[in-house]
């Protein structure tokens, strides 16, 4: 069973000169940690937006756990998916606990079970001493960790993370990556985007490299590296396929 199936996806934003997606197709198996990689402007964020139903594709098929991403299944899919946006999607003036209680309530969680869950996650992410501090007083790493907690309160089966370790220190990164492994070990599928390819190589069981709105290559990091004698790291493979030209 696939966690994500994308077939021949096309998307051009209104007023855009170029399409963002030009027939993108890929799939990830359920229960894996997978990476959706690509340079700036490759179409990663558009793909994630379509996967979670925020943006409609012009054409093509998207399935999440075999459920087509259509209006009819959107609510069902939302229950299965947790999205960790690249932005810190929290209310900065509220404390972490107030934020998590609010988002927990929106998921229908309440009372002691919610509070217990929040306490567990705060402890897991090393925020138990700062739960009552306003988020705007947090460091970058603390914000990233709180951002992840807000996305997993409803125990999603698929967690999609958009650059979850961007701008965080080594300790926070290590904690986040360990959490992803643990969460995956509990049965959750994980899709992860990052520009940190050594990190992707370490954590992802499979990656899909996309560029200019199309799939370039897909496979396990080890296989992709092995296919090219000159490549020793996933970053080499990435540059081999996407080139050295700077992207804006």
């Amino acid at each position: 069973m696939t966690s994500i199936l994308v077939q021949d996806l096309h998307k051009t934003y209104k007023g855009a000169l170029e399409p963002s997606l030009k027939g993108l197709s890929f799939s990830f198996q359920k229960g894996m940690i997978t990476g959706l990689l690509g340079p700036n402007g490759a179409g990663k964020t558009t793909t994630i937006s379509i996967l979670c139903g925020l943006v409609s594709a012009d054409s093509g098929l998207v399935k999440i756990f075999d459920l087509p991403q259509t209006a009819a299944h959107r609510e069902e899919i939302k229950k299965l998916v947790g999205i960790v946006p690249q932005q810190i999607a929290l209310f900065p003036q509220l404390t972490a606990i107030e934020n998590l209680e609010y988002f927990g309530n929106l998921y229908g969680l309440k009372g002691k079970p919610l509070r217990k869950l929040i306490d567990e996650y705060l402890q897991k992410f090393g925020l138990e001493q700062n739960g009552n501090k306003a988020v705007h007083r947090y460091s970058g790493g603390m914000k990233r960790r709180a951002n992840i907690i807000a996305s997993i309160l409803h125990q999603p089966q698929l967690l999609i993370l958009d650059e979850p370790t961007a701008g965080v220190d080594v300790q926070s990164r290590s904690m986040i990556l360990q959490f992803l492994r643990d969460f995956n070990a509990q049965g959750a599928s994980i899709v992860y985007t990052s520009h940190l390819l050594d990190e992707a190589q370490t954590i992802c069981q499979e990656v899909a490299i996309i560029d200019e709105g199309k799939l370039i290559v897909q496979g396990t990091p080890a296989n992709l590296i092995a296919q090219h004698a000159a490549c020793q790291h996933l970053e080499d493979v990435f540059l081999h396929y996407t080139g050295h030209a700077v992207r804006d």
Binding site: L54, E75, I83, L106, Y107
Partner: peptide, 21 residues
């Protein structure tokens, strides 16, 4: 600010009617 900070996106990703919010 909710739109800029991304919390609106998070709210929209949560199942349930936006009319409640």
């Amino acid at each position: 600010r909710e739109r800029e900070e991304g919390s609106l996106v998070r709210i929209r990703l949560i199942p349930g009617s936006f009319l409640d919010i």
